[in-house]
Amino acid sequence: MNKTLAFELCCIALLLALGILLLGNGLPGWGLIGVAALLAVGSGGLRLLNARGAADAPRLQTGLNAS
């Protein structure tokens, strides 16, 4: 696992844990849980987009070479 992904996962887990801890103590923790969810979606979504882009690049290159 690369360092950046590890950092992002730790950050999301920390926000989630803090949010739950705050809620358990009757404090506003929903904000942190919401931010953790947004970051998880953003992190996953961007990685998916990048992977798709990387997969499409050789195909495009092949198409250009063929033409």
């Binding site: 992002e8 926000l15 992190s43």
Partner: peptide
């Protein structure tokens, strides 16, 4: 997404 995580942490 690293920048977003850093910007919150």
């Amino acid at each position: 997404s690293f920048i977003s995580c850093f910007g919150v942490l």
